[in-house]
């Protein structure tokens, strides 16, 4: 059984009088340990697919099974739990909480999981060490470079040991050298067995994954199973 199973996913947004269909009958499987790139022009439904995969939104119809659990009908609270335990988000603009230090940012997912202070600190420091940011743990995001911020974000995404990493244009705000370094981090994580979904419009980046899923007008046009 695949780690991620999407079956006939439809997503329709109701705008005043018109219904806009963002996804139409998307079916996709991602295996455990796979590194898949999702590509497509703007408006192709990439973001919507990412929102559904990330349990930030529910499909209008269809079924989404993550790690053996049907999440398409889960309550808001259970979706929060799933995001917290199963999914690690990495955003284009890093999205660290500006008033919190790298360490505190990394502790946030552990905090919402209800883990005690001491354990939180220990686990967060471990994750920060893994991305090579130990000497910056006490710094605020604004005191870090873009690359360091993205490493911190990766540490935060990894801290709850999720089954899947969702990266949304993770190098979009970085220069090509730093972007390359971040891609190296992803490849390393992939080698150690992580499942990674990379959303990008950059073909060079996309090709570094095992497989490319091409979206167009809310449907998978290439790379599906």
């Amino acid at each position: 059984m695949a780690l991620v199973e999407l079956r006939d996913i439809d997503k329709t947004y109701q705008m005043k009088d018109v219904a806009v269909k963002a996804l139409a009958g998307v079916s996709l499987d991602f295996a455990r340990g796979e590194f898949v790139s999702i590509m497509g022009p703007s408006g192709s439904g990439k973001s919507t697919l990412l929102a559904i995969l990330g349990c930030l939104d529910r499909p209008t119809s269809g079924h989404y099974t993550l790690n053996g659990q049907d999440v398409s009908l889960a309550s808001d609270d259970s979706l929060s739990d799933i995001r917290n335990r199963e999914i690690g988000f990495i955003f284009q603009s890093f999205d660290l909480i500006e008033q919190l230090s790298v360490l505190e940012n990394t502790e946030v997912p552990l905090f919402y999981r209800g883990i005690s202070r001491g354990q939180r600190r220990r686990k967060a420091l471990e994750a920060i060490d893994r991305v090579g940011l130990s000497d910056r743990a006490a710094h605020l995001p604004r005191e870090l470079s873009g690359g360091q911020c993205q490493r911190a974000a990766i540490a935060r995404a990894l801290v709850n040991d999720p089954v899947i990493l969702l990266a949304d244009e993770p190098t979009g705000n970085l220069d090509s050298k730093t972007g390359g370094e971040i891609m190296e981090v992803f490849k390393q994580l992939h080698r150690s067995g992580r499942t990674i979904l990379l959303v990008t419009h950059d073909r060079d980046l996309a090709e570094q994954g095992d497989r490319i899923v091409q979206l167009m007008d809310g449907a998978v046009v290439d790379g599906g199973n």
Partner: peptide, 13 residues
Amino acid sequence: HEINIRRALGAKR
């Protein structure tokens, strides 16, 4: 944005 990020990281309502 901070609230949305917290929600994405697992904060319940």
